[in-house]
Design a protein around this nucleic acid. Structure first.
Lengths: 211, 211
DNA sequence: CGATCTGGATACCCTCACTATCCAGCCCGG
DNA sequence: CCGGGCTGGATAGTGAGGGTATCCAGATCG
């Protein structure tokens, strides 16, 4: 498959494919001559992954690059690779250790994590993300109570362990495991979000009697 | 409160506040002289809302503008206003009616909506968002089965109607209702997403025995 | 009465994700 | 065996989005 065919098959313009090659998101094709290279099925699959993470997951190209680098470095142990991929999915929070509100919220987050019996790395950026949301909810006068938070956490825990996690082939090839994890996290994450908004629309129509 | 105090209280730089004023996100202060205006508590609150939607919700400034315009137009009936706000939360999907895969997925979405007994406006962009996710999952070789989708939808429905919706003061002042809805949708939406990722990290640590 | 602040207008900047242009080398049909 | 069109690689440009910076004349505080 030459680049034009890869482009046609994936719907991604050639200049964009070249850009992804430059950024290291897509491995180079097999060189057959100085100005000729051959691409295959893995390239097409990779391209679809990139576009899904970009367009559905709204991940920055740089984060996608980190995920892909973790996948391709054979020396990284699997659980570490999953961590890298997972953390690249987080969106950065700019709150330093001098932000008192943030630190207080972080304490609540850690209490929640303890109560749930979760094993979360202390450097997980996810903790800061949750703390940020708690701070904003407080500031907006809709504070999240500890009880509600625990109910939600419980629900998510069951959802993840009962419906999602067992779909991931941890014992298969390493590349497959991360891809599944990332796709699961990002795409199912959006699916939930959309389903939640649909449920909200339907409920508010019911309550208000609006069409 | 003068602009510098508003800036100090909110943590938003003065030029940025001026930018929000220009964009119509923030109503002008009360003019007390040609070069003097007074801002109050509502301005601070509005500013916090804007920053929460921007930084946590990642909404474009233009969408925030639409939401605010809907709130401030007293002539719009409440259920319509809620719809406008809700649709501004959706992220645009570029798939025309000539995209066969998308149309097929849309049919599945409508079946789901029918089965759930939901009332969703036919022009809801949310339908396209869900269809897009289904298409991508198919392309990536991890298709979402109808059963799983229904399970998820069921879960979201219960979550929304039992835990969330009754917190919204539909009978209070119109502004409060939309604000609550929007804050609930965006901030709780992110809270779920983060809780889900925390649960995933914990589960994958457990399964892989990684620290 | 002068340093500082204010609202308003205009112009500028930075990041991000592309896109466009060039170039010389290659391949394929005639 | 030759010419048009594609190829990989390099470099430069673009457009949207979300701010920043600069100027200005009028207002106010100490």
């Amino acid at each position: 498959m030459r680049i034009s065919q890869l482009s046609a098959a994936s719907g991604v313009p050639i200049p964009t494919i070249k850009y992804y090659l430059r950024e290291g998101l897509l491995p180079a094709g097999e060189q057959t001559a100085a100005t000729r290279a051959e691409y295959g099925e893995p390239h097409l699959r990779r391209l679809r992954l990139i576009r899904a993470l970009l367009e559905v997951g709204r991940l920055p190209v740089a984060s996608i690059g980190q995920i892909i680098a973790a996948v391709e470095d054979e020396d990284t142990p699997v659980h570490e690779m999953l961590g890298t991929a997972h953390y690249a999915l987080a969106s950065p929070v700019d709150a330093g250790p001098d932000d008192r509100e943030h630190q207080a919220a972080l304490t609540r987050v850690d209490e929640l994590i303890g109560d749930m019996g979760w094993s979360i790395a202390p450097e997980a950026p996810t903790r800061d993300e949750l703390a940020q949301v708690l701070v904003r909810l407080d500031q907006l006068g809709m504070p999240a109570g500890d009880d509600g938070l625990r109910q939600y956490a419980d629900l998510m825990m069951r959802l993840v362990s009962e419906l999602e996690m067992h779909k991931i082939p941890f014992d298969g090839p390493r590349e497959t495991a991360v891809e599944s994890l990332v796709i699961g996290t990002v795409l199912y994450g959006r699916a939930f979000d959309v389903l939640r908004r649909l449920a909200q629309e339907s409920e508010s129509a019911r309550i208000l009697g609006g069409r």
